[in-house]
């Protein structure tokens, strides 16, 4: 890619990443949440891949690492559900609910959002990588 694209990417990729994290963390207060934020984070990585080529990105973040994060996200979500199960019902809230409209509120929902965000980011980016590398990874779902 040309110099302009690379420069702009260098400046904006971080912003996109931070915006995605922001969406995930405020998922229980504003529209958005784990899925939307995860997609935005994955987009920032895809952006980097498109501008700098897949080798530059894969040096920093290998395919195996993405897989590990994907499984960790899914297991974390399942663990939150099981903790809820220990508190009475599967998926039940096990943290204090807190005041509405605060960042630290809504019990276990922000944690679930973070887990979903990790899972979606890793899943989407690994789909992208699999298609780019022409080596199909059938574990994506």
């Amino acid at each position: 890619m040309s110099l302009i694209v690379k420069t702009v990417t260098r400046l904006t990729a971080w912003l996109i990443l931070l915006y995605g994290i922001n969406i995930i963390l405020h998922g229980h207060l504003t529209p958005g949440g784990g899925f939307a934020g995860g997609v935005i984070i994955a987009l920032s990585f895809i952006h980097l891949t498109l501008a700098y080529g897949k080798d530059a990105v894969l040096r920093q973040l290998s395919k195996e690492a993405v897989h590990v994060w994907e499984s960790v996200g899914a297991l974390a979500f399942l663990a939150i559900a099981l903790f809820g199960g220990a508190a009475g019902y599967f998926f039940a809230n096990f943290l204090p609910a807190g005041e509405p409209f605060n960042l630290f509120s809504a019990g276990s929902i922000p944690l679930s959002n973070i887990a979903i965000g990790i899972k979606v980011w890793a899943g989407l980016f690994s789909i992208f990588l699999a298609l780019v590398l022409l080596r199909i990874n059938r574990g994506d779902k």
Binding site: F35, L124, I127, A130, L131, L134, I136, R138, D140, K141
Partner: peptide
């Protein structure tokens, strides 16, 4: 999301 997964799988199969 399900559509995304199915489409990604079908595109990969097509490739």
């Amino acid at each position: 999301v399900i559509g995304l997964a199915t489409t990604a799988l079908l595109v990969a199969l097509a490739m």
